Computed example of a mutant assay.
Amino acid sequence: MAKPVTPATPKGERTRQRLLEAAEEEFGERGFHNASISNITKRAGVAQGTFYIYFASKEAILRALVEHMSQELRRSQSEAVSDCTDRIEAERTGFRQFLRFALEHKNLYRIVMQSQFVDRDIHRQYYERLLSGYEHRIAEAQSRGEVRQGDPKALAWALIGMTYFFGIRYANWEGRLPEESVVETVLDFIEAGLRPPAEDETSR
């Protein structure tokens, strides 16, 4: 498998970025198998030969796109919670930010889902990279007493799963953010599940 090309100049990076954005639209609207490199280059406004400077094939740009979307999602979440003072606040902020991100990137679900039929490793890595940092942050919060004890990986998977399906329901299916009452119901449920039990409960 050929390694992705890293552009040597800012202009090259901008071209590569345009190709990734065009691929996101093309794969999201037409599906991987119906998508074409010629349509990707037309959307990006570049010559078809330019595509092969950066990507060896349609499969290669899909792999790069999944990795790019993973990086963008994680960056978006990290920036959103950077000023939060504890893990509970970070979870509340992060949930809202994910819904906004999913709404802005409506093709996210379809592209990641399709990737498992092209490269199962990149599909799995997408979720494992989300999990890795999440698990670490939950474990740190447990050490500070901000989150109840338990397997941090299990907690991370549960939270990712909840957020994922709310994104499908609202951002992907309905193309909108949920009502505030829905968001608060979910956030209260998450907080109740994460917050350490009161002393009188632990002494029972």
Rank of each mutant, 00 (worst) to 15 (best):
I122T: 13
E91W: 01
E184L: 13
I168V: 15
R195H: 08
I190V: 15
I190E: 07
D119W: 11
A171P: 11
L177I: 11
T185K: 14
I111T: 08
G94T: 01
E179M: 10
G175S: 05
K106C: 00
G150T: 06
E135L: 11
L159C: 03
E135P: 03
Q116V: 13
I111S: 10
A154Q: 14
G94L: 01
E191Y: 06
V112M: 07
P178L: 10
S132V: 06
F95E: 02
W157P: 00
Y170R: 01
P152E: 03
V147F: 01
E201F: 13
G94P: 01
P152L: 02
M162V: 15
L130D: 05
A198H: 03
G150I: 09
I111L: 09
I168W: 13
A154D: 09
Y134A: 02
A139C: 04
V186G: 09
Y126H: 14
L155W: 00
Q149Y: 06
A156L: 04
R110H: 11
N107D: 03
A156H: 00
E89I: 00
G150C: 09
G193F: 03
L99G: 11
F117S: 10
Q142T: 02
T202Q: 10
K106T: 02
Y109S: 05
F117C: 02
T93R: 15
A90R: 00
E201I: 13
E135H: 11
A154C: 08
Y126L: 12
A154F: 06
Y134G: 00
I190M: 15
G94K: 01
Y134K: 10
L131W: 04
N107C: 02
A90P: 02
R92D: 05
R96A: 06
S143N: 13
P152G: 03
E191V: 15
G133E: 10
N172G: 05
G175D: 00
E140L: 07
F117W: 12
I88Q: 01
H136T: 15
E191P: 05
G133C: 09
F166C: 10
D200K: 12
Y170A: 00
P178N: 07
E104N: 15
E135G: 04
E135W: 08
D188N: 14
V118A: 08
A156N: 03
Y127G: 09
F98M: 11
A156D: 01
L194D: 09
I160F: 09
R129D: 14
Q125G: 11
I88E: 00
I190P: 05
Q149F: 01
L159N: 04
L131C: 09
G161T: 13
R129V: 04
L99M: 14
R100G: 07
H136C: 08
V147Y: 00
R195P: 00
E128M: 10
